[in-house]
Design a protein around this nucleic acid. Structure first.
Length: 782
DNA sequence: TTGAAAGGAATTTTT
DNA sequence: TTCCTTTCAA
């Protein structure tokens, strides 16, 4: 065996090896949670290069997130050294943007097109609606959402399917068409366009497509279960069925982005799309203790339509799952904080190996408060906060305008920032004038005198603004790096100065952010210089008919910086050192921690109320037809599976008896996902379960109705906070008292033991439920 | 043009 | 409840 090969195969299990060594042709790697898929992808790439002697520039590896791309690249650098620089390892959107920029003229753009984000998109939709006089008819947000969905489905306005009589659909199509026209006129694209325009180009220009097919002989895709139809289409064009070297890696059980257009069917039907594809299953989990894995399986098992696979592990059984029950969300948060401190004191798990996952961001506030109070260091892991700040976006808008003055959305954003006395009325007159003449705002500003109804001060101010932009654009033309352009922009626009003049603490911070923005540009320049050196060293022999140049070659520095801002965001706020991580369940995908906390395991929170409602309405004729209620619930279940499988050693699931959300107090029953978990995972023996007095009807007819708060219940942590003191516990003789239980309904107390909130009482419930022993806290006076 | 007040909506958000 | 957008008044 080649020495490279043996080193690459070291410490791989047989299916992993099979995936790494698979020769040519399509391959589907079904990789369960924690089964080492990144290792498989990176080793496979390394094997292609080192053993099979494939040129690195022939390999395209696509991921969904920048983080995943970065990690993959880092691991490939370790395996391949400098050769890794010639690989294309990037996200769908980045690679599409790179190709689109090279081929811009084919799709009605110039190379300096800019990328609009969500906020820009919404503004364009609003303006298009206003222009068409249909502002009142529909929510711009909803229209934008539907446009995005169309793009995800790879449909241009003319391909939209609208039933006759579907007024709203027709409206969407109209706005969509106008929206696209505006983007093209502004030399701008949105995220969806990056993929959709490229697909369109490849479909209409086989010669262009052929260049890329000739170049990329190997395409690998991570997290394939989250691809949407355009992305899949792009893959099929680049690596056509039935025999291209397309390797897709994913787990149907971790598909959680349906609401963004992802389609699990892509992975489920892959073997049909690529007949003859080899399927390799990675089923050994190296991450979680057996108990946790079993609980995760208990939950996911209930989903229909899954690829057949069984996760197993030879890790120890491990600790029982812990269930935390509390009075309300504040007590719950305190309890989580307390448990975190306890774990840390035990000394086996560090703060940085713990995480709290929640379903919705609104849950984070109370958790943060509790952690702060308990002095638990934490980091809130959330999207791309830095580049979302208003002042940073203003700065970016100026830069984009410098590169591409036609960008109306950017111009509108900063025409009066910092305030220069150009108000709404003036802007509206300019807009009307530009629209009627079919030119960009910037062009309309070249002769403000000719704009009707403007007074002389307005004209003067507009001229000043236009001169500012013109001067900056000229500067940008031959700026040698991104930082100098940013510096010049900050200087001429006085963005920093005007913030500093304000004097408030907040404006100081914002000024500081702008300096940091300049710092980001400087860092970008340094990295770029380093990358250029590495690429130069690497010039390999290339067949003359193949274009093997780096996809980013010839992109001017400022433009490349802007692209990074749009597509990559900040350089990843690494999960803080020595800090507990707080994030949504969606953000948790791909991560792992020793201890995981899942607060809010309640119906209506997780699963989300929307999924519960959709399920309840599924037999209603009025159910909205664009949503699939069962699929919606299935996705919540997958999300739960993702959450559970992030945990290595300890899993804490938690719920509150009542919780206030949006100012309203709710009493949510325990999450169905909890009820799906076998009690023994919580340390309750099978025997306990069977000897329990339970009306057979409940168990037999509806096994799902099994509840864990009867009898001993699963291991419930008893260290309730003082905050629970005011709870109605059992005091005095309560026998005979009529009570009501969230799940079991009305009943009468037969016996009681203990006192305080955790006292247990035996209650005879009506409605065929019979005798139950429940915790007093879960009862209300009936 | 700007600020304050009122009104309305509030999953998830890789790019 | 809270945050964001829109609207209204100075």
């Amino acid at each position: 065996m080649n020495p490279h090969e043996s080193a690459l195969l070291e410490d791989l299990n047989p299916p992993q090896r099979e995936a790494v060594l698979h020769g040519d042709g399509p391959l589907l790697v079904l990789s369960g949670a924690g089964s080492g898929k990144t290792r498989v992808i990176t080793r496979r790439v390394a094997n292609l290069v080192k053993v099979r002697r494939v040129f690195p520039w022939r390999i395209l590896a696509v991921t969904f997130t920048n983080k995943a791309a970065r990690e993959m690249r880092e691991r490939l650098v370790q395996l391949l050294g400098a050769q890794a620089n010639d690989l294309v390892v990037s996200t769908f959107h980045s690679s599409a943007a790179m190709i689109l920029r090279r081929e811009a003229e084919h799709v009605g753009l110039t190379r300096s097109f800019v990328i609009y984000d969500d906020g820009d998109q919404l503004n364009v939709v609003k303006r298009a609606m206003r222009e068409a006089g249909i502002e009142q008819s529909m929510q711009p947000r909803e229209i934008l959402h539907r446009i995005d969905q169309e793009k995800n489905a790879a449909r241009l306005p003319e391909h939209m399917v609208v039933e006759p009589g579907d007024e709203r659909g027709m409206l969407v199509r109209r706005v969509y068409a106008a929206y696209q026209e505006r983007l093209r006129a502004a030399n701008a694209v949105d995220f969806g366009d990056l993929l959709l325009l490229l697909v369109t180009l490849f479909r209409t220009r086989p010669d262009v497509l052929e260049n890329y097919r000739r170049r990329f002989h190997h395409v690998l895709v991570d997290e394939f279960q989250d691809t949407n139809p355009v992305q899949y289409e792009l893959l099929k064009l680049l690596a056509p069925p039935p025999s291209a070297n397309l390797v897709v890696v994913g787990d149907d059980d971790q598909s959680i982005y349906r609401w963004r257009g992802a389609d699990v069917d892509n992975i489920l039907n892959f073997p049909q799309q690529y007949p003859g594809a080899r399927v390799v299953k990675l089923e050994q989990n190296y991450r979680s203790d057996q108990n946790i894995l079993d609980a995760a399986n208990d939950v996911i098992r209930r989903n229909p339509r899954r690829m057949d696979k069984k996760l197993w592990s030879d890790r120890p059984r491990g600790a029982d799952l812990t269930l935390l029950l509390n009075r309300d969300e504040r007590a719950e948060a305190q309890e989580v904080a307390r448990q975190i401190l306890a774990l840390q004191r035990e000394g086996l798990i560090r703060f940085s190996s713990m995480a709290v996952f929640y379903r919705v961001n609104a849950q984070s506030r109370v958790l943060e408060e509790a952690l702060r109070l308990a002095r638990v260091p934490y980091t809130l892991v959330s999207g791309r906060s830095f580049y979302d700040r208003a002042e940073v976006r203003d700065a970016a808008a100026y830069l984009r305008l410098m590169v591409n003055p036609r960008s109306d959305a950017d111009l509108l954003r900063i025409i009066n920032t910092p305030a220069r006395g150009i108000g709404d009325t003036t802007v509206e007159r300019v807009t009307d004038h530009a629209n009627s003449r079919g030119v960009s705002l910037y062009e309309a500003l070249s002769q403000p005198e000719s704009i009707p109804d403007l007074n002389t001060t307005a004209v003067k101010r507009l001229k000043g603004f236009r001169n500012l932009v013109a001067s900056l654009a000229t500067f940008a033309l031959d700026a040698k790096d991104a930082a100098s352009a940013v510096e010049q922009m900050l200087l001429e626009t006085k963005l920093v100065d005007s913030l500093q003049a304000e004097g408030s603490d907040e404006s100081q911070t914002r000024a500081e952010n702008l300096r940091e923005f300049l710092g980001a540009a400087q860092e970008f320049d340094l990295n770029r210089a380093a990358a250029a050196v590495a690429a130069a060293k690497n010039a390999a022999e290339v067949p003359p008919e193949v274009d093997a140049a780096p996809l980013t070659a010839d992109v001017p520095p400022l433009q490349a910086f802007l692209e990074q801002i749009s597509l990559v965001g900040e350089a990843d706020a690494e999960v803080g050192e020595g800090r507990v991580a707080l994030m949504t369940l969606h953000a948790a995908k791909g991560l792992e921690f020793d201890a995981v906390f899942l607060p809010g395991m309640e119906e209506g929170v997780f699963p989300h109320a929307r999924a519960v409602k959709a399920e309840a309405m599924q037999h209603d004729d009025e159910a909205p037809r664009d949503t699939d209620p069962t699929e919606e619930m299935a996705e919540e279940r997958r999300l739960c599976y993702v959450g559970f499988t992030r945990a290595r050693k300890r899993l804490f699931v938690s719920l509150a008896q009542c919780r206030s959300l949006f100012g309203e107090l709710r009493y949510n029953p325990p999450s169905r996902f909890l009820q799906d978990v076998e009690p023994k995972r919580f340390g309750i023996s099978e025997q306990d379960l069977t000897t329990r007095a339970r009306p057979p009807s409940t168990a037999a007819v509806a096994p799902r109705k099994r509840t864990w708060d009867e009898d001993d219940g699963p291991r419930i942590d008893r260290s309730y906070s003082q905050a629970s003191d005011d709870m109605d516990g059992v005091g005095g003789d309560v026998r005979g008292m009529r009570v009501r239980h969230e799940q079991f309904g009305l009943g009468r107390i037969i016996a009681a033991d203990g006192s305080g909130p955790n006292a247990k009482v035996t209650v005879e419930f009506g409605g065929g439920v019979g005798l139950k022993r429940v915790i007093a806290r879960f009862l209300m006076p009936g």
